[in-house]
């Protein structure tokens, strides 16, 4: 427990003493919000979402097995 406590205090004190780091953390958190909340939820839905494994196999096999100009 002492080790965990020391690690916890190490991080807490480290974050408290930050100067430039505060600005950078704001930037990082903002960016992560944009990436994981806005982009991931609204713009990047996996194209084969909702398909079973067999359906995915069949979908890709059909797509790859037929020459695109035919």
């Amino acid at each position: 427990m002492n080790i965990l406590n020391a690690i916890f205090r190490f991080y807490v004190e480290g974050f408290r003493r930050m100067t430039l780091g505060r600005t950078l953390w704001v930037l990082v958190l903002l960016k992560l919000f944009v990436i994981f909340v806005i982009l991931r939820l609204f713009f990047f839905r996996p194209a084969m979402q909702g398909m079973t494994i067999e359906e995915k196999q069949q979908h890709v096999a059909q797509r790859l097995g037929i020459p695109l100009d035919k």
Binding site: L20, I35, L39, K56
Partner: peptide, 29 residues
């Protein structure tokens, strides 16, 4: 180093999103 790291970190994850969405046949293969 810290400024560069903070702005750059996680930008590579978007590439992984693009694999699943824009390049799904490739991703499966």
């Amino acid at each position: 180093f810290g400024v560069n790291f903070a702005v750059g970190v996680a930008t590579g994850l978007i590439l992984e999103f693009e694999f699943g969405t824009n390049w799904s046949n490739y991703s499966w293969l």
